[in-house]
Design a protein around this nucleic acid. Structure first.
Lengths: 204, 204
DNA sequence: ACACAAAGCAAACGATTGTTTGGTTTAATA
DNA sequence: TATTAAACCAAACAATCGTTTGCTTTGTGT
């Protein structure tokens, strides 16, 4: 019986999640280099040094936030598309879910969108892999459409992801709802086909 | 006659441009907070303090780079579209010019794409205005198309700009040429209409 | 050749950076 | 209640940050 097995139950009110939330907020707003450990600690209600009880370094903290960010978007999008069957509706639902994550200023989603994997040299490949894993989700969605050729599918996917992640630079409250924007985007790559008509029938 | 008029001719080999180039390189690669004055000075071949002979602050240096960045893209795009007459060809040429600026790792273009106006609080409105001024160029191009309604025109513009600026996150050497990508993008928002066929006739 | 401004060096400034260390509080277990 | 690990504070560390200052070099017009 290993010694490590003898452990107390962790304290209920662990503030690790507070640190993660604060870090997500500041990384998402100011980027990796622009957010300081002191800012994060203050936002989490503790002193700078206390951060290092929960995470061994600033970079590890960023990776943890990034992982949870990808995890949240994946879960949100998967839940949205699991309720649909028609390929175009599934894509539209995925776009809407993604856009809501980004446009509601969801801190974790902003980190994934804003922080470049290259900003953290020691974790570049890890962050890239996470991002690629998420985008594979959209690859499947787009491949299920009946687009004219694999090239169009590839670029439809790239256009959608790029377009959606760029919304944070121009969107502000009062603009169209994420739902309306998602419909426009999906219709955009659809090119007259697909799900852009609200209650319309399918094309022949 | 004002005293300031009595000035010598500036030295020919002024290294102000070297500083700008070095700053563009590092701001574009590492962002504003991620690039240090020392790095920039070293890349320009001088000591950190010497930067402040040419620019009063790091923020002013960023603004200068950003201005030149916008200026370069505007000139490049305008030159590209002035040779075309057909609206779809003009849009396609503009996209190609923009993409070449970004994908050839043009340092100045990267700064405009990467640095958020909000990263430099003292100059946010200035940078936003510059960016908006450039995007107005695309507004005109898209409005000249015969898209179904102003909403579609607006989102076609947003999709194009977002998509193009996002390419830097996935593009690497060996991928399709900027020309091919531009054609795909323009065809994407065109939706079966427009200039996606290479030597094709215009639609009726 | 001389004067003078442009351009840059050398060296430091105080502030802030990520991080470490040792001690202290808190709460759960036995 | 005594024990023990979890969780955090308090204070500092060396390094690096943007920036300033005083002095020197470089080049150009007269």
């Amino acid at each position: 019986m290993p010694v490590e097995a003898i452990r107390r139950a962790p304290r209920i009110d662990s503030r690790r999640q507070n640190v993660l939330d604060a870090a997500a907020r500041l990384f998402g707003r100011n980027g990796f280099a622009g957010a300081t450990v002191r800012d994060i600690a203050a936002a989490a209600g503790m002193l700078p040094g206390s951060i290092y009880y929960h995470f061994p370094s600033k970079e590890d903290l960023l990776v943890a936030v990034y992982e949870e960010g990808v995890d949240r978007i994946v879960r949100t999008v998967e839940k949205a598309i699991n309720r649909r069957r028609a390929p175009w509706k599934r894509l539209e639902a995925a776009c809407q879910a993604h856009l809501e994550s980004v446009l509601d200023r969801n801190d974790y989603a902003l980190v994934v969108v804003r922080v470049h994997p290259g900003d953290v040299p020691a974790a570049t490949s890890r962050l890239t892999a996470l991002r690629d894993g998420y985008e594979a989700l959209f690859r499947d969605l787009v491949d299920d459409l009946d687009l004219a050729g694999p090239a169009r599918a590839k670029y439809a996917r790239l256009m959608l992801i790029g377009t959606m992640n760029w919304t944070q630079t121009w969107y502000h409250a009062g603009d169209d709802t994420p739902e309306a924007i998602a419909r426009q985007f999906a219709a955009g790559v659809g090119g007259g086909r697909g799900a852009e008509r609200k209650g319309g029938k399918r094309e022949t």
